[in-house]
Amino acid sequence: MATIVVEVMLKPEILDPQGNAVASALPRLGFTFATSVRQGKRFEIEIDGEPTAAQLLEVEKAAEVLLSNPVIETYVVRVEK
C-alpha cells in the first residue's frame, strides 16, 4: 500500500484571507516568527501496491480536473514513503 499526496495551494497572486487571519493570530499568542502564512489543502490518496507511472498520471489528471481549480490554485503530486 502506498499513499499519494496531493497538495493544493492558492496561487501567490490570489488573496488568501484565511492565511492572513492565521498570520495575524500567531503574534497574539506570542509566536512572532512568521512574516507571512498561506493556507492550502492536502489530499492523502491510498492505493494498493506501489504506484505505477500510469497511476501517477491519472492522479495528476484528477488533481487538474477536480482536486484543484487551475484558475486560482496550483497542485503538487508526490508519493509518501
Partner: peptide, 9 residues
C-alpha cells in the same frame, strides 16, 4: 474566473 473567500472572512 473563480469566487473565493470574502476578504474579511
Amino acid at each position: 474566473g473563480a469566487l473565493t473567500r470574502n476578504s474579511d472572512l
